[in-house]
């Protein structure tokens, strides 16, 4: 099994430095969200959920997309390294998907008075995307480790990528509820400049946090594989 790490410029940043920057940015995000960004005139304090809910949702989409890209690279270049990278990205996408559903439900309850609305296309489509990638793990672990599992998992991950733009666009095209959007149809900001700045910092913080998790999880899994090889060699 190939356990070498990719040699891109982003992967050269040491994990401790990356995690420190992510933690500092998350702290700054909380300060901005609670003490700097003005209170929304319409929704009041519950609008502050937006600063973490939307970046978490965007990060979930990014993780699923990244997992699909790595799956494509696996099928194209036939390098086993991409199988682990695709799996880790989808694993993190699922974690961020759970957080999106949880924070979204809490915000829906605070704003609309309901935890979940089945008639709402954007909620249901995100749930479909989440369940699709949750089933990825059932498929993956039902097949023995090896090239067949890597190929089947990669093909499944690639199919799911179609759902990402549908789920994302549903929020903009939905006509059932007024789901908040950052930019309106004329590409104008739907919020105050300070609110938008806070949102951007939160987005960067959550993305970096997810990337730190991705690197840490990859390191752990590669170390695990190397130890397994070493154990077999010593046996």
């Amino acid at each position: 099994m190939s356990t070498s790490s990719p040699n891109s410029s982003a992967s050269k940043i040491p994990v401790p430095a990356l995690a420190t920057i992510a933690a500092a940015l998350v702290g700054l995000s909380i300060v901005l969200a609670f003490f700097v960004a003005p209170e929304d005139a319409d929704q009041g304090i519950s609008q502050r959920i937006f600063y973490f809910h939307v970046p978490v949702a965007l990060t979930a989409y990014a993780c699923f997309g990244w997992g699909a890209l790595k799956a494509l690279l696996l099928l194209w270049k036939r390098d086993e390294r991409y199988d682990l990278e695709s799996y880790v990205a989808i694993h993190l996408g699922t974690i961020f998907g759970v957080l999106t559903l949880a924070t979204g439900s809490i915000w829906a309850r605070a704003s609309w008075g309901h935890w979940w609305v089945w008639e709402s296309k954007q909620l249901v489509l995100f749930l479909v995307l989440f369940l699709f990638y949750s089933a990825y793990f059932m498929l993956r672990f039902s097949i023995d480790e090896g090239p067949r599992r890597a190929n089947v998992s990669a093909v499944y991950a690639l199919f799911g990528v179609v759902l990402i733009p549908i789920s994302f666009l549903a929020i903009r095209l939905a006509d059932d509820f007024i789901h908040p959007i950052v930019f309106n149809d004329r590409n104008e900001l739907n919020m105050d400049g300070t609110m938008f700045f806070t949102f951007c910092v939160c987005w960067l913080a959550i993305t970096l946090l997810a990337y730190s998790f991705y690197r840490v999880e990859l390191l752990g899994k590669r170390l695990d594989a190397n130890l397994r090889d070493l154990r077999e060699a010593l046996a």
Binding site: L99, W107, F213
Partner: peptide
């Protein structure tokens, strides 16, 4: 207020998830 409780719950969910993740990684 109820709004404040919902905001605390939403941020708490994210915080707990990060904490659980760190604990799992530490165990590993």
């Amino acid at each position: 207020s109820s709004g404040e409780k919902y905001v605390a719950a939403a941020y708490g969910v994210v915080f707990v998830a990060v904490l659980v993740y760190v604990v799992i990684i530490a165990a590993k």
